[in-house]
Amino acid sequence: MWSRIISRLLTSLVVAWASVTAAFLALHALPGRIQDILAGDLEYPGLREAIAAEWGLDRSLPAQYLDFLLRILQGDFGTSYVLRQPVTEVVGSQLMPTVQLALLGGILAVIIAIALALLTAGRGRISRQIASFLELVFASTPVFWLGILLLMAFSFTLRWFPVSGASGWQSIVLPSLTLALPTAGLLAQVLREAMEKTLDQPFVTTVRSRGVGELVIRARHVLRHALLPAVTLGGWLIGGLLGGAVITEKVFGRPGLGTVTLGAVLTHDVPVVLAVVLLAAFIHVAASTLLDILYLLIDPRLRAQ
């Protein structure tokens, strides 16, 4: 099992390294000088020279590449020339609200998906049809439109929650729900299908014959099996949540990485966007690696191989 864990870790390191390399190559493959690309929409005397000095643009390409790798390894993503601040500060100061939103959205999504699957898997035709219809609708609804609808219903009409901003727990209810529902729709689809397959397994009959109640069978025995295929989706889910958080923040006017990134995209502030994208990729890779290892620990069948 250890060899599997180690090889999984190595693969992830390779992917993380490759994504940094891809970013470096993309920068150099673009038409135009790197100085102009990194400067964004900014123009003042001495700027290009300063950038050239910071990025060591007078040195050979391999030396620049090595320098780039080392700096990212140290957590240094360079300077945003548009904001005139180190990128780490720009991103770091806005990280928390987004992480909060993504985490809460993710937890909500998992809870909703598990509840839907527990209640409807293998039940009568009508409840399954309703559930799969709901899942389809959730999965097909754009995050931002869902946000707009929730805003209209709960903020403008019912006035239960504030319209925008990020103060107090009330302000995170609608954004996290917005983020959670589409993800929950997709997750519930997978979970329900896996549960229905598991419910047909002989061990379920055995458990049932011991007189265990239906809900306990589902929650304690079937769900554990069904969670495994869903766990493989974990990495994808986290990536989707981070991307979705950016859009959700825009809908609700919440501060966070979304505002920073969007602003950076519009002013061509490449260092900031690059840092956010790489950070998201690292989080994604780390999370899916962790989940895969967890998978090995949970499922004894995989360990034996």
């Binding site: 994808w236 990536g239 991307g243 950016v246 995209v265």
Partner: peptide
């Protein structure tokens, strides 16, 4: 590598 970048963010990088 391509799928390690969340889709929206990768797309935002391309637009940058």
């Amino acid at each position: 590598v391509l799928s390690s970048f969340p889709g929206v963010l990768l797309a935002m990088l391309v637009v940058t």
